[in-house]
Design a protein around this nucleic acid. Structure first.
Length: 565
RNA sequence: GGGCCCGUGGCCUAGCUGGAUAGGGCGCCAGCCUUCUAAGCUGGAUGUCCGGGGUUCGAAUCCCCGCGGGUCCGCCA
């Protein structure tokens, strides 16, 4: 019902399993997806050779000879047994799933698992820059995929409203002269980052400023209500500005939680007291730490959780936050930059010391840098996300202007926005998260090939054919010809790709699949005339299938897909 | 000094639980718009899979040693 490939895979696995028992092989074996044109699944027989004391080729032909299935057939190919699906069974099965699932094709049944996924959580001290964009894009895409794969997901933004960066922002906002260079927009994140940058340079020059900022932090740490609400008043507009930019990328959150909460409600004190009881806890000059000798590597293995001054640390608050999250969901996923790797393992051990069995699962990503080096909001060496979006939308706007002079201005603007935003999201998600990205304008603004516009364009083509068909296309199961079956094979992979992305927590693979579908559809478009052909009704169903899968795939990537582009 | 991640044609990238000719994309060259949107399609050139050892019937994939890049090892966040 959900996955057209499932029944075939099961039949092959059962059949092969029986043969393995018959020939007395109890070792490992796996089915793999063979290269293009060699069937549906393959069984390499090399691993069986030494156990059975026979040549792989001989074993392969033996297994192929013994195999029998209702829907699948086997064939020897040297040391491999290749399994193929007889006739058009896969195509028909795919059409059946499409008919049964309709617009939800690709989604998986509910797992009943509640997942709290924390992402972004950027300090609210200025506009998001391109480097900070990778986190929300990975997080939001992951959330969309997990939901589609049946998990019950809540996304959360942990607002750092009490840290040093924010204190610098607050001091700057309170003390900045009125003649600071004005921002190019009136968005609060852009306006107030000027005060933040100014405060940073003042702090470096003047120790008195540094100590004023320190005392602000102490006020918050002490749980002083006045200081906390003063902070909140300054942070709120900045955070709103950041959220506005994220919303433009179709990224929103189910929940927000303030870091200050854990100071105010006493959770941090509980964590500190709990950790002090740990057998690996120790005191040194009035500060408390966990000695993680043997658990972590580096110059120091001490994990400090209480300062000699008695105030808490970011990491301690983070432990309190994770305990809180653990109480709210069955599983936790955090999206973090690779610079947080050590902290994540320290956090895990600390939770263990507090008697917590579960651990947050972490998806790490490497940084996005500029060709000239690291980005820094403080130094102003940045490409702001807002500027990148504006630039992408503007470029898309010029494209639309020259390609589609026929449509009205509102429509053009809508398409430009969709293409610009899509290009950015696609470009940021398509690469495996552990690879670093060097930001280059020409790549970020690429509208050809392996890009969002490529897939959006295919979607629009599909939409336009259906519109031209003139009537509602209803799903139906029919006998596909060769070209059609080839296309349906790509469509049949969607549910298993969703499962793979969700289970391995690798959202970037969805981008690759969407690209494959667009390529397959473009070929189908070239080879198979739809409107006016004698297979018009059947082919319209395939176009609808393409539109459904492309649409759902783009939704999973958070990329808009207008019907015309 | 130590830990973790990355290193694939000029550029970006998939493949990495070892297996059938290393997939894509950008760029380059040559074609295709009286045919459902050419942001498309077809064909072509371009690869010491960072280097060296090892394990194996077989290594881009596993192990060891290097090299290059990233990142971390604060009573900062």
């Amino acid at each position: 019902m959900h996955d057209p490939q499932e029944a075939f895979v099961e039949e092959i696995e059962e059949g092969v399993g029986r043969i393995m028992a018959d020939i007395g092989y109890s070792g490992e074996w796996v089915l793999e997806v063979p290269p293009e044109g060699m069937g549906f699944r393959a069984l390499p027989c090399f691993p069986l050779a030494s156990a059975l004391k026979k040549a792989p080729g001989e074993i392969a032909s033996d297994i192929a000879g013994r195999y029998s299935g209702d829907m699948t057939i086997s064939e020897t190919a040297g040391p491999y047994v290749n399994f193929s699906i007889g006739g058009t069974a896969l195509g028909r099965k795919t059409l059946e799933c499409l008919e049964g699932m309709g617009p939800r094709y690709g989604s998986l049944p509910s797992t009943g698992m509640s997942i709290l996924l924390e992402h972004t959580s950027a300090n609210p001290n200025g506009p998001l820059h391109v480097g900070r964009t990778r986190n929300p894009i990975i997080g939001d895409t992951m959330a969309r995929i997990l939901r589609f794969a049946g998990d019950d997901v809540t996304t959360e933004y942990y607002v750092n409203d009490v840290g040093k960066q924010v204190a610098i922002l607050v001091w700057g906002t309170d003390n900045a002269p009125s003649d600071l260079p004005p921002a190019e927009t009136d968005k609060a994140d852009h306006v107030r980052v000027r005060a933040y940058q100014w405060a940073n340079s003042r702090m470096e020059d003047d120790p008195a400023v540094a100590s004023e900022i320190e005392s602000l932090i102490d006020g918050v740490e002490a749980g002083d209500a006045g200081t906390i609400s003063h902070f909140a008043g300054i942070v709120k507009p900045v955070l709103d500005g950041m959220l506005q930019s994220l919303a433009r990328l179709n990224i929103t959150y189910d929940s927000f939680i303030n870091e200050s909460q854990f100071i105010v409600n006493g959770d941090v004190v509980d964590v500190v007291n709990g950790l002090k009881k740990s057998p690996i806890a120790a005191e040194e000059d009035g500060a408390w730490f966990l000695d993680m000798e043997g658990l972590v590597h580096g110059r120091s293995t001490k994990f400090v959780f209480a300062r000699s001054s008695g105030t808490s640390l970011y990491t301690t608050r983070d432990i309190a936050y994770h305990k809180d999250k653990l109480a709210r969901a069955e599983a936790l996923i955090d999206i973090l930059g690779e610079d947080h790797k050590l902290q994540a393992t320290q956090l895990g051990h600390a939770l263990g010391e507090l008697g917590e069995e579960r651990r947050p699962e972490v998806v790490f990503y490497s940084f996005v840098s500029l060709p000239e080096g690291k980005m820094s909001t403080r130094k102003g060496v940045v490409v702001y996300m807002d500027d990148l979006i504006d630039e992408a939308v503007e470029l898309a706007r010029e494209e639309v202007e020259s390609r589609r002079p026929d449509i009205d201005e509102t429509k053009k603007a809508e398409i430009a926005e969709a293409v610009g935003v899509g290009a950015i999201r696609y470009n940021m998600i398509r690469v495996q998260s552990e690879k670093k990205i060097v930001f280059k304008w020409e790549e970020a603004l690429n509208f050809d090939g392996d890009s969002a516009p490529f897939a959006q364009y295919a979607f629009a083509r599909a939409s336009s054919i259906i519109a031209k068909g003139g009537k509602d296309v209803s799903w139906k199961v029919f006998e596909p010809d060769n070209e059609e079956a080839r296309f349906l094979e790509v469509i049949s992979r969607f549910p298993s790709v969703v499962r793979d992305c969700a289970e391995t927590r690798r959202p970037y693979r969805m981008a690759g699949y969407v690209h494959d579908v667009a390529v397959a559809f473009n070929q189908f478009y070239r080879d198979c005339k739809v409107i006016g052909s004698d297979r018009e009704e059947e082919r319209l169903v395939l176009v609808k299938a393409a539109r459904t899968v492309l649409g759902n795939g783009l939704d999973l990537l958070g990329i808009p897909h207008p019907d015309q582009i």
